[in-house]
Computed example of a mutant assay.
Amino acid sequence: MKRSAEIAALEDRLGHRFEQVDLLRRALTHSSMSSPGREDNQRLEFLGDRVLGLVMSEALLAGDRAASEGQLAPRFNALVRKEACADVAAEIDIGAALKLGRSEMMSGGRRKMALLGDAMEAVIAAVYLDAGFEVAREMILRLWGDRVARVDEDARDPKTSLQEWAQARGMTPPAYVEVSRSGPDHAPVFTIEARLANGESAQATAGAKRRAEQQAAAALLDKVSHG
């Protein structure tokens, strides 16, 4: 079946040549481009999330046979969360092949963390359906690379960790305040300040509000833990 240049190039970066190339096309189709004759990637995203979860569960169990469930769970979450999927998607430039509606494209959809993360999960499902679990597992472990080996032993979402730190000291949950927003509408840049009830605070700047909040939380947690 005929492939576009974008599809062929992405297959090279994935390391998998599709027998059913329409699966990959569907995995790259955002809901803003769906139509009666064109399925979007939401169902594949649902499946890909489960395939990724199984691969990472196996890898973590094999990599540390002495770890407890309590130690494995935060590592697992760090490897499968949307930010991790989006980072891998950005590394192999899935955004260049995404099929987006005009409004989503104009708002910088090819660089949005949520869209990239969803597309990565959908692509995983497409590979799984095209070639089976073993091929999907090999691709996932290759693309995630040393992330599995170097995942922090106590890997946690920084916002969750900061909230637990505050609650353990009888404080209310941290507040996240948008200090500024700059840049064009299609590529905004956010500066977020994380604040604790004791007056401690830290700021971070990123191209996505959620990422800026995470970075601000991490900075504040580091500050109060080592201050």
Rank of each mutant, 00 (worst) to 15 (best):
Q20A: 14
V21H: 10
V21G: 06
D22C: 06
D22G: 05
L23P: 02
L24V: 05
T29Q: 04
S32H: 11
S32Q: 12
M33K: 08
S34H: 10
P36V: 02
G37K: 02
N41Y: 11
Q42Y: 12
D49K: 13
D49G: 11
R50T: 07
R50A: 11
L52N: 05
G53Y: 03
G53L: 04
G53D: 05
G53K: 04
L54D: 12
V55D: 05
M56C: 07
S57R: 06
L60I: 03
L61Y: 05
A62L: 15
G63E: 07
A66V: 10
A66F: 05
S68Q: 01
E69D: 15
G70K: 05
A73R: 06
P74E: 08
R75Y: 09
R75N: 06
F76N: 02
K82P: 05
E83W: 05
C85L: 15
D87N: 15
V88I: 15
A90E: 14
E91M: 05
E91N: 04
I92H: 00
I94L: 13
L98F: 04
L98W: 04
G101Q: 06
G101I: 10
R102A: 15
M105Q: 13
S107R: 15
S107Y: 12
G108T: 10
R110M: 08
R111D: 13
R111V: 09
A114N: 10
L115H: 04
L116H: 01
A119F: 14
M120R: 08
E121H: 09
V123W: 00
A126H: 03
V127N: 00
Y128S: 02
